[in-house]
Design a protein around this nucleic acid. Sequence first.
DNA 1: AGGCGATTGTTGAGATGTCACCATTGAGAA
DNA 2: TTCTCAATGGTGACATCTCAACAATCGCCT
Lengths: 154, 154
Amino acid sequence: MKRKTTSPGPRYAALIQLLRTAEELWNASRVFFARWDLSPSQFNLLNVLTDFPGGCTQSDLSRQLIMHRSNVTGLVDRLEERGLVARKENTKDRRAWQVVLTPAARKLLAEIYPHYYAAAELVWGKLPATRAEKLVAELATISENATRAAQANS
Amino acid sequence: MKRKTTSPGPRYAALIQLLRTAEELWNASRVFFARWDLSPSQFNLLNVLTDFPGGCTQSDLSRQLIMHRSNVTGLVDRLEERGLVARKENTKDRRAWQVVLTPAARKLLAEIYPHYYAAAELVWGKLPATRAEKLVAELATISENATRAAQANS
DNA sequence: AGGCGATTGTTGAGATGTCACCATTGAGAA
DNA sequence: TTCTCAATGGTGACATCTCAACAATCGCCT
């Protein structure tokens, strides 16, 4: 359907709605993790670390969490103060730390996961698994498109 | 992470992916608006104001933007310094400001909108309009579920 | 008219995020 | 080896967000 360039069209409104819903999702996760006095970012960091039994560097974390290195510094600082994470020397690279989970963090995560799994069931509701997969896939495509569109020259 | 093949199930992984994608979408919009030296929140604020020709109070803005009142203070402060927004006296309520768009802001928005509409087309790509609407609707349902799930008792 | 709870905007503390810049270290080319 | 360039983590400046507390004002109720 052809539209004048001055006419927003439905895709414009849908995009705004999409961004707003994404924000609400993130807010919901913030409320959820507040029960354990964790921010979503803190949980994500701990969760990522469970994939690295030997720990990983802060730069690795920044790539996994898609955030700037300098932000990881503060996150690890606060988690370290709380005893959920430890900075160990990296024998292969003296520039880097090896960030590892503490037993306390593993205990905390073990407590959280069941609630998280249950919440995931509630979130998806009656949506069939195949439909959910399709939704996530479509959203991923849209996200890639958005990344490209954002950098397109005006 | 524990073995995904045992208990968590696909819905857990899909939820994490959903949150990550939502974050990427937001990041893409940040890159997009950086061209005009605006943050997504600043654009959203200006965009909301276009729906209120006579302006509105900061509390109205906080409700529209789903953010805390105290955050609106800073946003309006900086937009006011840039001359994109003005605080006028609210004759009906002496506690409140009436925040209005300046002509400069209207000019800036007029410049941005065509690019935004074009970006929206790129973002949705070849996805049919009906499919896009369905996706947004499903996502909205999921967001509501997430809000409920986040507050469910542990 | 007076009282009282709710609302408005601001402030300060603090977490989260970006970016630019820095010293240190690593790794490979000359 | 030495030189150069990239990568690592830290810092400071700043924007964005939340929350608690506050003074001023509004609106309603008696």
